[in-house]
């Protein structure tokens, strides 16, 4: 693999299951990690709903996103940033989420975007 490294930020903004955005973002995240590029994920707006534990989509014939997100750690993807305002607006607390996350406010998000070479939105 070449020495060229670019840092990637994936911005998630959509709830899971209603459309393919969450799954597409996950596929891209895994691909970036296979190429060993530094990667962070940011969950804002409805995408914070992707992080709810104990999802059970067998009844709607889809794959379990919460199981897949728990796997990110095995790919050394451990930079999971979450918009604190988005959690608050939905009556959720950081303790409701079983993944290891980092809470960010609006200015934290601006800084995060500035710090990365490439930003992909889903």
């Amino acid at each position: 693999m070449s020495d060229t490294k670019k840092s990637f930020l994936i911005i998630n903004r959509k709830a899971p299951y209603g459309c393919s955005a969450a799954r597409d973002a996950l596929d891209v995240a895994l691909t970036i990690s296979v190429f060993e590029q530094p990667l962070s994920l940011l969950f804002m707006d409805d995408a914070v709903l992707q992080l709810l534990p104990a999802q059970n989509p067998a009844g709607i014939g889809q794959k379990n996103l919460s199981a897949n997100l728990a796997m990110l750690e095995m790919y050394d993807i451990d930079q999971l940033h979450v918009c604190s305002e988005a959690l608050q607006q939905r009556g959720l607390r950081a303790e409701d989420i079983e993944l290891n996350i980092n809470l960010l406010d609006r200015s934290g998000i601006a800084t995060l975007i500035k710090q990365h070479d490439q930003v992909l939105s889903f």
């Binding site: 709830a15 709903l49 709810l52 534990p53 009844g59 709607i60 919460s66």
Partner: peptide, 30 residues
């Protein structure tokens, strides 16, 4: 979700509210 309860407080009492259980279980809403 309980955080959105406010949205429904002004509904007439005669309106019945339902949700599809398969969709709420899928999304981890307990």
């Amino acid at each position: 979700m309980p955080g959105y309860a406010e949205l429904f407080t002004r509904l007439p009492a005669s309106v019945q509210c339902y949700l599809l259980g398969e969709d709420s279980s899928a999304r981890g809403l307990n």
